[in-house]
């Protein structure tokens, strides 16, 4: 802990104040807490939580609505909509949000939901892939993952996914950037402690894509990774890179059992 603080001061950009345990609360977090795993929801301010609690107060639902519309919209040379093959998303996509990323044989690597959507678009619909972080891709990803809301995260990490899981794990524990910090230094060692004025969470991924107050919109998990990596003064990887998809699998497993919350609301 001491080392982190010193590194941060030396780099002088980010003032890291690692105070003593900020919360010794006995709150019953219900489904948001599974064993020692706690959703980011449990670290959010009361007001932020209440925005997430009501689908008519949660602005991220605007993206989910857009996703629903796009689901039924015919696009591309094949003359298909998502619904042409997958019909009712509530049935066909019921599990997807809980089990992705998955190993994808034709590519010999993992793919996440965003990539699965774009594969469907380019290969089955003969439509253009959506850009990462575009309104369309965020909306569809939020819509698809929202179908699994409440289901416990249950990714597959054995079989062909195993080596990619290991790479994701390695990434998580690898120190990087000028501040020489790994994901673990904040989200394992200091979850529940203050970093300046903010409470560090366990960095769980079960609510993504999520509406961040800072962003004032919905954003992807990979956008968050890029932000974290920049904060430790490391060069972020590209959204959709193998590194981030592998990390996504490791994080999903780390939060195994937490319910899918998409679309969550976070600071």
């Amino acid at each position: 802990m001491r080392r982190i603080a010193l590194a941060a001061v030396a780099a002088s950009g980010l003032t890291v104040m690692l105070a003593g345990t900020a919360l010794s609360d006995e709150t019953d977090w219900g489904a948001y807490e599974v064993g020692d795993k706690r959703s980011g929801y449990t670290y959010a301010a009361t007001e932020t939580r209440s925005i997430q609690d009501d689908d008519f107060e949660n602005p991220a639902m605007l993206w989910v609505d857009t996703g629903q519309e796009l689901w039924d919209t015919v696009e591309g040379e094949a003359g298909k909509a998502c619904a042409s093959c997958h019909d009712d998303a509530a049935v066909s996509m019921a599990e997807v949000g809980a089990i992705y990323p998955v190993y994808y044989e034709p590519r010999g690597k993992l793919i996440n939901i965003e990539q699965r959507i774009n594969l469907c678009r380019t290969e089955n619909m003969k439509a253009k892939a959506w850009k990462w972080e575009s309104r369309e891709l965020l909306s569809m990803t939020a819509f698809v993952r929202n179908q699994a809301r409440g289901r416990p995260v249950a990714v597959k990490i054995d079989g062909p996914a195993a080596p990619f899981y290991e790479k994701g794990k390695e990434f998580y524990y690898q120190r990087r950037g000028q501040l020489d910090m790994a994901c673990k230094n904040c989200h394992e060692d200091n979850a529940g402690n203050m970093i300046r004025a903010n409470l560090l969470s366990q960095g769980q991924s079960n609510g993504f894509p999520t509406y961040r107050l800072k962003w004032q919109k919905v954003g992807s998990l990979h956008r968050r990774f890029r932000g974290c990596n920049s904060q430790v003064r490391a060069t972020p990887y590209k959204a959709g890179s193998d590194e981030y998809v592998n990390l996504e699998l490791f994080l999903a497993d780390r939060g195994r059992g937490l319910p899918v919350e998409t679309p969550a609301v976070r600071n």
Binding site: D54, F56, E57, P59, L62, W63, T66, Q216
Partner: peptide
């Protein structure tokens, strides 16, 4: 009545 709209 609750209302939301997307707008920057």
């Amino acid at each position: 009545i609750k209302t939301l709209i997307t707008h920057k």
